[in-house]
Amino acid sequence: MFRILLGLEDCPGLVWNFKGEDLAKLKTPDRRMGVVFQTLDLFPHMSARENILFAARARKVENAKAQARLKHLIEVLQMSSFIDRKSAILSGGEKQRVALARALMGEPRLLLLDEPFSALDQELRDESRRLVKSVIDAENIPTVLVTHDQKDVEVLATKVSEIKNGRLITD
């Protein structure tokens, strides 16, 4: 589903009205989506800072704005202690925060989270859920969360829909 929404997979006939605009008609970069995949997909040879700024360049965020945004995200996501470490040596929770910062760097119109806590231990999951919830609320960004963990739903969701056997079921 995320690959279709991002424009990475074709879905003929898709109409996706989001705030009055059909995002399905836009090219992938123009959709302005932030995404955190289950695998986090950081560049291991880059530092946390470089991974986040890579997203700024890809989204064509002007340098001064990118630096200000980076400073803000470092503070909000509590990344100052590891921002210049290579992502290959970061802990799971640190990688998760870098992936979230990278997704938020371009001020996306929508944030897509695919099992973002699945690789974390239980204590770190609880802390990460609270942190992600606070960032989503502060950024006021609509978020689609795909999860199998009911606790993720309890902490993060304001509306819940289920997909069963390929059909959307709304609560």
Rank of each mutant, 00 (worst) to 15 (best):
Q122L: 09
V61C: 08
V61T: 13
K65P: 03
E94S: 11
L104C: 11
L124E: 07
L100N: 09
D84L: 00
S87R: 01
L112I: 07
L90N: 00
F82Y: 11
K95G: 12
F82S: 00
E94M: 09
D84E: 12
K65N: 10
R102Q: 03
S91F: 01
L70N: 13
I83C: 01
S91E: 03
Q122D: 01
V98D: 06
P116D: 09
A68Q: 15
K65Q: 14
A88I: 03
S91M: 03
S118Q: 02
G106H: 01
H72T: 13
R97G: 11
Q67G: 11
L111R: 05
S87Y: 00
M105K: 03
L73R: 01
A119V: 10
E75S: 15
L124H: 00
D121Q: 10
G92C: 04
L120Q: 06
L70K: 12
L124C: 05
E115H: 10
L111V: 11
D114R: 06
L110S: 10
R109F: 06
R69I: 11
K86Q: 12
M105I: 08
V61F: 03
I89A: 05
E94Y: 02
I89Y: 02
P116L: 02
I83V: 12
Q67R: 14
V61S: 08
M79N: 04
I89V: 14
L104T: 08
S80A: 14
K71A: 15
L120P: 09
R97I: 03
E123C: 12
S87K: 00
M105Q: 04
A101R: 04
E75I: 13
